[in-house]
């Protein structure tokens, strides 16, 4: 039977014991191997906060399984996960045939790193800004006044404008000095 590359993301109960989580994974592996498939990669995303509650739980333990298998295998995997009460949800996706699955995994990891880096930079910038603001608050009465305001629709996407913020900071500090 023809095999294809698939990827299944599934959410396990965060309260489940390690043994139970391991059981889900070994079970999945057994199914794939018994149908002559191959496990390419298993990614543990850890316990993450979900966007909405599932089974009254706020968090979920995410796994991402990449494998090569045929359609029978996918059906069997999904049937098993549906039976298991510790598996909240799963989503199986057929991977792009033009892209090497390992390369795709690497690309995904690189993207995660890039996100983490950007967030760290932003946190540092925010910390700097807060420190500056606290300093100003101590000396110049805060600058006061109505700053900012209604920026278009409430529904509109928030657009980050770091460059503008930096300029604003400079002018505001200048004013504060003049007031003194």
């Amino acid at each position: 039977m023809e095999t294809r590359n698939y990827e299944t993301v599934f959410i396990v109960n965060p309260g489940a014991s390690d043994a139970k989580v391991a059981e889900v994974n070994t079970r999945n592996q057994q199914i794939i191997q018994s149908t002559k498939g191959k496990v390419l990669h298993l990614d543990d995303w850890g316990k993450k906060r979900m966007a909405y509650q599932i089974n009254k739980e706020l968090k979920g333990h995410y796994f991402c399984l990449t494998y090569e298998a045929d359609t029978r295998c996918v059906a069997e995997l999904e049937r098993n996960m549906r039976i298991n009460e510790d598996v909240f949800r799963f989503l199986t996706v057929k991977l792009d045939e033009k892209v090497d699955p390992m390369a795709a995994i690497e690309a995904y990891k690189r993207k995660l790193e890039a996100h983490a880096k950007r967030e760290k930079e932003r946190a540092e910038r925010d910390a700097e800004k807060n420190a500056e603001r606290a300093e100003r608050g101590m000396t110049g009465g805060g600058g006061g006044g109505f700053r900012g305001g209604f920026k278009g629709r409430h529904d509109a996407p928030a657009a980050p404008v770091p460059a503008l913020v930096a300029e604003d900071e400079v002018t505001e500090t200048d004013i504060a000095v003049e007031e003194e």
Binding site: V9, A107, Y108, K111, L112, H115, D155, P157
Partner: peptide, 19 residues
């Protein structure tokens, strides 16, 4: 690139109400 697992990128194209 667009990937359903990469929700941080997806969030750039969602409104505050997740539309």
């Amino acid at each position: 690139s667009i990937d359903y697992k990469d929700y941080k990128t997806l969030n750039l194209f969602l409104t505050e109400r997740s539309k």
